[in-house]
Computed example of a mutant assay.
Amino acid sequence: MTTVAISTRVELLTGRSWTPVCDWEQLTPGRGVAVLLPDGQQAAVFRDHQDEVYAVANRDPFTGAYVLSRGLVGSTPDGRVYVASPLLKQRFDLATGECLDDESVRIPVHAVRLNRG
């Protein structure tokens, strides 16, 4: 008898449907990956060290560069998980999109689910 491994897919809500963007196994805790969405937008998908998955816009609003997926993942003393932009180092809460260094700035957040297939 052959055992088939069922891959877990990470999916983002795009419009009214869920779009598969990568395999769970491709996400390294503490790092992000950039994904291209069907509408041409980019998202940054992250897996934290507690295996929670987040997705935000990949565009850094301070520079306009599509680099947030290359940022460093960390957490505040009160447990808010964030990504720090690799360019100017502003931190964005991965759950809310709020900039922790300038509360007037926010990035879009995408709904995420795991599909165990």
Rank of each mutant, 00 (worst) to 15 (best):
M1S: 14
M1F: 13
M1A: 15
M1P: 12
T2M: 06
T2H: 10
T2L: 07
T3W: 01
V4R: 13
I6A: 03
I6R: 03
S7T: 15
T8W: 01
R9A: 15
R9G: 10
E11A: 02
E11N: 01
E11R: 01
L12F: 11
L13N: 09
T14L: 13
T14Q: 13
R16W: 04
P20R: 02
C22L: 14
D23Y: 07
W24Y: 14
Q26L: 13
Q26T: 14
L27M: 11
T28P: 01
P29Y: 00
G30D: 02
R31S: 03
R31M: 02
G32H: 12
G32M: 13
G32T: 14
V33H: 04
A34E: 15
A34Y: 11
V35S: 11
L36E: 15
L36F: 09
P38T: 13
P38N: 12
D39Q: 14
D39V: 13
G40T: 12
G40L: 10
A43I: 08
A43Y: 04
A44W: 05
A44I: 09
A44H: 02
R47F: 10
R47W: 06
D48M: 02
D48F: 00
D48A: 02
Q50S: 14
Q50Y: 10
D51Q: 07
E52W: 06
E52P: 03
E52R: 08
V53W: 12
A55W: 12
V56Y: 10
A57C: 15
N58C: 11
N58R: 14
N58T: 11
R59L: 15
D60E: 05
P61S: 10
P61Y: 09
P61V: 06
P61Q: 10
T63D: 01
T63C: 03
T63G: 03
G64W: 05
A65G: 12
Y66E: 14
V67K: 10
S69C: 14
G71M: 08
G71S: 07
L72Q: 10
L72E: 12
L72N: 12
L72W: 11
V73T: 15
G74D: 04
T76G: 11
T76W: 08
R80Y: 04
R80S: 06
V81F: 03
V83R: 03
V83N: 06
A84N: 11
P86Y: 07
P86C: 11
L87R: 05
L87D: 05
L87I: 14
L87V: 15
L87P: 06
L88Y: 06
K89C: 02
K89T: 10
Q90K: 04
R91G: 05
R91P: 07
R91W: 05
F92N: 06
D93F: 01
D93R: 01
L94I: 06
A95V: 00
T96C: 02
T96W: 01
T96K: 02
G97A: 08
E98W: 04
E98M: 05
C99K: 07
C99R: 07
L100G: 01
L100E: 00
L100M: 00
D101A: 01
E103F: 09
E103P: 11
R106A: 12
I107W: 03
I107N: 04
P108N: 03
P108F: 01
V109Y: 01
H110T: 03
A111P: 01
V112H: 00
V112Y: 00
V112M: 00
V112A: 00
L114R: 03
L114E: 00
N115L: 04
N115E: 06
G117L: 06
G117Q: 07
